[in-house]
Design a protein around this nucleic acid. Sequence first.
DNA 1: CGTCCGATTGATGCGGGTCAAATTGGGTGG
DNA 2: CCACCCAATTTGACCCGCATCAATCGGACG
Lengths: 259, 259
Amino acid sequence: MFTQAGYVGKSKLDFPEFGVARGTPWRSVEGTGREQGPELGAASEPRCRGRAGGAACGVLQTKRAGEMLFSQGDRADGAYEVVRGMLRLYKMLPDGRRQITGFVSTGELVGVTPNGARPYTAEAVTDLVLCRFPPAAFDRMIDEQPGFARRLLSATADDLDAAQEQMLLLGRMTAVEKVVSFLLVLAKRQGGVLARFVDLPMGRNDIADYLGLTIETVSRTLSRLKQAGSIGLPTPTRVEIRDIRRLEMLAHDGAAAAA
Amino acid sequence: MFTQAGYVGKSKLDFPEFGVARGTPWRSVEGTGREQGPELGAASEPRCRGRAGGAACGVLQTKRAGEMLFSQGDRADGAYEVVRGMLRLYKMLPDGRRQITGFVSTGELVGVTPNGARPYTAEAVTDLVLCRFPPAAFDRMIDEQPGFARRLLSATADDLDAAQEQMLLLGRMTAVEKVVSFLLVLAKRQGGVLARFVDLPMGRNDIADYLGLTIETVSRTLSRLKQAGSIGLPTPTRVEIRDIRRLEMLAHDGAAAAA
DNA sequence: CGTCCGATTGATGCGGGTCAAATTGGGTGG
DNA sequence: CCACCCAATTTGACCCGCATCAATCGGACG
C-alpha cells in the first residue's frame, strides 16, 4: 500500500533503440577534450548507441567530481544519460539554502524536455561519464519510434511519483525516519531487496540537503543508529545493515525505538 | 532565475483535440446517477469533447466535497480532467500523517499514466464536476494524434518541476516563507500577476498538510501577517493582498520582517 | 610527520509542535 | 427572521526536536 519508492535518481528509460550500450568502451569525448575518463581505460567506441533513423545521436563527455553540468536558469539544450558515476540535482534559495531534489545514477536520464530554462542545477557527485542527446534526437525518436513517447512519459511519471514520495518525507517525517528511509531506498537500489552493505557516494552535506536536515543531525542520527546496533559504519561512506527489521520499523514510525 | 512555480495543481494539457469544451453545459453523469451537479443548471452536452478518430471518449461525473475519487493503491483506471471545482492529492504514513502533494483546479488533468496502482489518493476539496478518460483513449491519442504525446510529456514535466519546487519549500523554508509563498502562488494563478483578493477553497488542515506545518502554525502565521498589515482576512477563506512588496520579500527571506 | 577537509561530538537556543481553551461564523430548525 | 449548534479557526501556554555555534577527531595526501 505504501510503496516507499523514495527519490534517489531519475528516469530510467530502458528503451533498446536508444541510449548507451551498457559496458561499451569508449575513447574520445566532447567538450573539455579529455582523452581519458576517470578510471576507464582507452578503447574504441566514441559514440552512444542512440539512433534516429540510423544516425548516431549521442556524444560522450566527462566531468570531475564537483563540476557543474548545467545550472538553474541555463537555456536547456538536450538531455544526458549517466554512463558512469552520480549526479546531484538541486534548487537553491537566494540566501544559499539548498534542496537536493534527486541523485542520478548510472543508466538514468536527466534533463529531458528541452524547452526553456533548466529548472535545477546538475553537478557531479563523483567523477562522471555522460552521454549527451541533443533535443532534435528526442523529437525524432518521439515522432518516429512507436512506443518511445510512452516510455518517456512513463519514466517521467515515475520521477514525479518519486518526487511526491520525497515530499511526504520532507514534510512529515522525523530525522530518524528520514535517514533510515534514505538508507533503505539506497539498499534496495544497490542490491535488490537486501544488500548487507550500502555505499554512500555523496557526503553528509548532500545527504542533509536531500533530507531537509543539517549535517550535524544526519551525523548524530547515524551515530545513534550505530550505537543501537541497527547499522555499522566501517567507513563514513559505507553502511552495514545490521538489523533490517528494526530499520523497517523506524522508517515509518520513529517512535518504534522503544521496542 | 528562481522561478517559484509553486505546486498548486497538475497538468494543464491545452490540446484542442482533447478534453472538455470549456463552459460546455451538461446534463447526465456516470456513476452515482445524479442528474444535476452542484451549482450547475441542467443543459444539453453529456459528454466531453475528447475524441480519438471521431468517437467521444470522456464521460462526465460529479463528486461532493470530501468524497474520494480514488485511493492510494487502487488499480489505476484512466485519467480525469477537473471541469469544475478542486481536488486534493495526498500520500499518508501508516500512523495517519498526511502530505498533500498538490491541488488540482479547473481545467487540469490528474491520473495520467494508467499503469499499475495509484500512487496517491484523490479527494474532492469542493463539489466537483469531472470528466473521465479511459486508458484506451490516451493510448489512441498518443498513437494517432501527432504532438499529443509531446504535450502530455511536457505537462508531466511541468508537474515534476512544480513538485521539485515544493520539495525546496518543504525542506528548506520557514513557516512564514511557506505560507507567504503559498499565498503568492495562489494569487498568481487566480489573477495573473496581481490579484488583490485570493480565495482559499481548502481549509487550514489542507493548507497545513500541503506546507508541512500544523493547523495552528498556519493560523498563527496568517494572523501575524494580518496584524503586520501585509494581508487582510475578511473571511477565513479569503485573503486580501495588502503589501505585495513585503510579501515578496518574506517569501524568500523570512528574516526580512525587520525592514 | 604535518596539513587539511569532512565527519563527529558537545552545549545551548529557538521555531514550530502539542495540548488545551476560547471564539467565530455558516447552516439548520423553530 | 432569529436563536442555536457544531465544526473550523484562532489564541494561549508549554515543551521538544532539531538547528546553531563551537570544538575535536580522523583519515587522505603531500
